[in-house]
Write a protein that binds this DNA or RNA. Sequence first.
RNA 1: GGGCGCUUAGCUCAGCUGGUUCAGAGCGUCUGCCUUACAAGCAGAGGGUCAGCGGUUCGAAUCCGUUAGCGCCCACCA
Length: 976
Amino acid sequence: MEIGSKYSPAEVEGKWYQYWLDNKLFSSKPDGREPYTVVIPPPNVTGVLHMGHVLNETIQDILVRHARMEGKNACWVPGTDHASIATEAKVVNRLAEQGIKKTDLTREEFLKHAWAWTEEHGGIILKQLRKLGCSCDWDRTAFTMDEARSESVIKVFVDLYRKGLIYRGVRMVNWDPKALTALSDEEVVYKEEHTKLYYMKYYLVDNVSIADGDGNVIHKDERGYYAVVATTRPETIMGDVAMCINPNDPKNQWLKGHKVIVPVVGRVIPVIEDEYVDIEFGTGCLKVTPAHDVNDYMLGEKYNLEAIDIFNDDATLSERIATAQQKSLAEVSVSDDFVIDLQKYVGTERFACRKQIAEDMVAAGLMEKIEDYDNKIGCSERTGVPIEPKLSMQWFLKMEHLADIALSPVMNDDIQFYPAKYKNTYRHWLENIKDWCISRQLWWGHRIPAWYIEPGPTPTLPSEGALPWGKVIVAENEEEAYKLAVETYPVLKTLEAPSGAVGGATAAFTLRQDEDALDTWFSSWLWPISLFDGIRNPGNDEIRYYYPTADLVTGPDIIFFWVARMIMAGYEYEGKMPFRHVYFTGIVRDKLGRKMSKSLGNSPDPLDLIERFGADGVRMGMMLSAPAGNDILFDEVLCEQGRNFNNKIWNAFRLVKGWSLTPAPSPIGEGSIYSQEQPTNEGRATKVTTPLSNRRGVGGEALATSWFAAKLRIAAEELADDFSKYRLSEALMTVYKLFWDDFCSWYLEMVKPAYVDGKPQPVDRATYDATLQFFETLLKMLHPFMPFITEELWQALYDRQPGESIMRAELHLPASTDADRQLCADFETVKEVVTAIRAVRSQKNIAPREVLVLEVLKKEGTDALSILSLQSPITKMANLSAINVVTEKSGGSASFLVGTTEFAVPLGNLIDVEAERKKLQAELERLEGFQASVEKKLQNERFVQNAPAAVVEMERKKLADAQQKIAAIRDNLASL
RNA sequence: GGGCGCUUAGCUCAGCUGGUUCAGAGCGUCUGCCUUACAAGCAGAGGGUCAGCGGUUCGAAUCCGUUAGCGCCCACCA
């Protein structure tokens, strides 16, 4: 097989993805195996893949592939979200480009456009996930607005309504004047802004004279006494119906019982008293505008004040301000000094109006002062415009019961959060939860299944007053609603009976469906259930098998929107948690720590990255810096590292596949060391006491092979441990180092055949087989992270049956043993010795191909000889001709310590005595310092008494070792 | 305003129950190598008062307190 020295992902990825699809390797059906279920956090149906998705989906794919290789029945269900408000906004924009206004369309026409848009863009993102390698069961692809999901949503709405958990009412809601819809509290984000604080004059209507003193702070000018009200929103004075002071506020006692004039408006309003008012803020006088502020609304309720809504839905000033002004002026007329005809503001936009009215007030002498002020403004998460608190009729879901059932499972870890710190956030939200506004004034979404009873076109009315006009009926469909209406209000039966057709032209009454759609999250919260049809078809085989799902991978930004609510729905409808673990990913930022955004242009296109580095490279780049819950500082350099790793794997494969075999298999454990045949270095003076020989009878390859087998077993356990703790980036790093350092740099270098006469020698069968098996194991360990290259090489490693895949290959290694650990520890010594010799080469500029001799100093009380059992790999890796045990090392040699054993490399006159002396001197000082500190510790009686025996013993050993080393270095120095 | 978290090498982070030879990794940096798998590579090296201060302990990066800086979440001070 001819293979290039560079891995080309593009050729490989498409091929294997198709192979996986063709062989249905992603698909799952309930069977006897343990299920492992993941539901995708559904991306917006019209969205495109961004780096956040790459992170999120890569993690899910790693978990799913890992579980699949553990022999579990892995099922990853993909799908998309209709994203009501976002998608509707996009459709509205597109229509606007075509010169079509939404308001000119009927609901049906608009929905046609929306569906067309969905067909056009829907699923693009799912296609992109395939490029990433995601192993979703595509046959299960769902959409929050497909039939099964829609019916589930409606069923749940009806159910909750009948349970009394859903109600309808006029409440202060967050109004998005751009999207023209109500929003839930969670959809409001607060932004810090530099604004102004306006201090306005509210003159007293009764021009009495007021005595100074008693702490009162009185304002008076030529027009009379006035109170000063501070506000950030002067335009809302048009809705003022009262002024409120704190009854305990000494500086405002004089205002008690008076009436004041709203400047500009001219309305006369009472001064009311409530302890809600903060004495410290502003002047302690609060204007009360029940229609436009949540707190004012509460005051309004409490003191029975009128709410004057001054805005249209798009937050322009309403005609109502003028009529309200006329009405109040008709009641109590005030001096023209204080009044401006509000008609001039009608139709202006709220911020323009604010500017204008402030200027007008200054001009009219009604403004005391204007100060700079930093304020937090609630804005729509979607459209970004400031929210307008607005009174409106909406549907709400009572949250108390749902919060109750959702709290404890997380707090007692039935559902585990990674990282666990989000438990606090979760608890705090549930403990302070408010009712969920679930209606949206949108068309794109699930229409609320509520109908209002209205007179039909041809009613014959017995007695109008007794009829239930306007009453609401909640049912799964219109037919049901009709039946229910008649059942609930038997009087409807007495009307002229409609002839069959529901709500038809002949009906005596009709049902008019509520215009509103449901909040998108009202469908997403059912996702883990509705994907298996558990709502429409409770207890079906799929829901019983796949539910609860295993892991949910999502961002902490939707912990309330989605995670918490899924937990509520899970317990309410299945009586069980929807998932066992939640893995919270961080936010993907650029390397400077900035959020990735279109406007900054700092967000790379994932598909472009995949093209340049390969999907495996991008996945690895993402995972290299992705501990759970931490933000990811993404840097292309990491993808490059990923690509380089792919290349490394590729080349390791080329090496192994290029080997030829010796004709007859040679048994492991005996002989077969070609390095024995290498010539000894006759040229260098040595005091040989032990000839180079295989003292303990184990060959180089065999030793390397048993070492790496042990290493693999230990690494597999580390890997399993990392996975169990969701430390995926550490798991990847474990395999990365295992492959690159241990397998390539040590193992392969140890077993790789030598060249004789320019030709590589054949490799013995046992080594070859073992190497291939190691390779296969490594590929399996890597597969969840890098699915494509591992499949490519796995397929090429051995002959495979059609339809076979590494995806379904299981990774079973026997448990590691103490012997394994001992062997690995021994090999650490090998590595240290080899590294030390290489360092000598590097320092002395000795080429790797120049053959050296190593001397081991045999001293009384030391274990110098044990190294000889490992001499074969050392000899090869350090390119030695011999390892000689000596009692006295050669003159002019570079020496080093590994453990307490001293080694020397004879170098003849290459040695720089002065430099060597300096080095030794430094090392000696370090060791003496260390020795002193250990001695001090051991002389401390409290340490010896209190510390565990093992720790004390360890210290004693440290001391003994240090003493030995010091002695060796002193000898060395003396001999120089 | 309330709550949570973070601060360890140039960068990004591990360090899990306080105790293996003065703290680890990856990347980057420096030095030397085009050595017949791989220069997208090989070999070697340097780099840290564990944010500051105080305490507990025989022993602290680790536990407690405190200060500073950073970040996140929640909240109706107009």
